Computed example of a mutant assay.
Amino acid sequence: MTAAPTNDAPTVAVFRPDDDRLEQAVALLTNLGAEPVPDPMLAVEPTGASPRTDADYVVFTSKTGAEIVSESGWETGAETVCAIGPATADALREEGYPVDLVPEEYTSSGLVSALAGHVDGERVEVARSDHGSEVLIDGLVTAGAYVHETVLYRLVRPDGTGIAAEMAAAERLDAACFTSSLTVEHFLEAAAERGISEGALAGLDAATVGVIGEPTAETAAEHGIDVDLVASEATFERLAAETVDVATPTDGE
């Protein structure tokens, strides 16, 4: 359920990696009138791998992937470069790569829909983390593509995380913004390490829970977390704005 926050500036947990994404998320939430609770649930460990160079299409699913391939010295050729959404596309362009395709829906299923009529018999390279959705691979294979996946980086939970779980268990968290299934799982792992799993779940039940994408919503539901909203667009900006809007009390509350 959704409960009104305990003060005029709702406390909102954000779980983005501890780099410029977390800084930007904190700044955005502050500008939206919230009190951010930064609790990074993801850390990036590059694998040293690079995308194959013989593909007809190369698909990137994150800003992190764009930055890592640039650091590895990967160069484009005649392939079609695809980005899952505008943030990934912008990151690729900032690293000097062309972007040929961004789907209308910024999800794995959106990418499949955008590519389905073009990849039959083509070689598609998917360059991403070790926790990528099977929806993308399965969908491309069904569309007739020869798919190869390169794991560019692993996503792990940093040490010392869990302040948001503690605040939820203490009923001091008004909202949480989950950006992936893995952030949900890591939040729950942090709660379990502290022996406050039941309290943290109860705290989320009394808060506004916003997520990006149906897969994240499904993961949350599987773990007993009630999701109040799925962002209308798969961007953190939209997730933050919509979550704060729901979590902020209106006149009379």
Rank of each mutant, 00 (worst) to 15 (best):
A3K: 07
A4G: 07
P10A: 04
P10K: 01
T11H: 13
T11M: 12
V12N: 00
A13C: 08
V14L: 10
F15Q: 02
P17K: 02
D18Y: 03
D20L: 10
L22P: 00
A25I: 00
A27R: 10
P36R: 00
P36H: 02
V37S: 09
V44R: 06
V44E: 08
V44M: 13
P46L: 09
P46D: 10
G48W: 10
A49I: 07
D56C: 09
V58S: 11
S62N: 12
K63M: 14
G65T: 06
S70V: 00
S72N: 14
W74A: 04
W74R: 07
T76C: 14
C82M: 08
I84E: 03
P86Y: 13
A87T: 12
A87P: 05
L92N: 01
L92R: 02
Y97Q: 05
V99T: 08
V102L: 11
E104P: 07
Y106H: 14
Y106F: 15
S109P: 00
L111F: 05
R123M: 10
R123G: 06
V124K: 03
E125N: 09
V126K: 01
A127F: 11
S129A: 13
H131K: 14
V135K: 13
G139R: 02
A145N: 08
Y146W: 10
V147F: 02
L155C: 12
P158R: 06
D159H: 13
G160N: 09
A169Y: 02
D174W: 00
S180K: 04
S181T: 11
V184F: 04
H186L: 09
F187I: 06
L188S: 04
L188G: 02
A190T: 07
A191N: 04
G195R: 00
G195K: 01
G199E: 06
L201Y: 03
L201I: 11
L204A: 03
L204G: 01
G210P: 03
G210L: 05
I212N: 03
E214H: 14
A217M: 11
A220I: 03
A221D: 15
E222D: 15
I225V: 15
V227P: 04
D228G: 15
A231Q: 07
E237Y: 11
A241N: 08
D251A: 14
E253C: 10
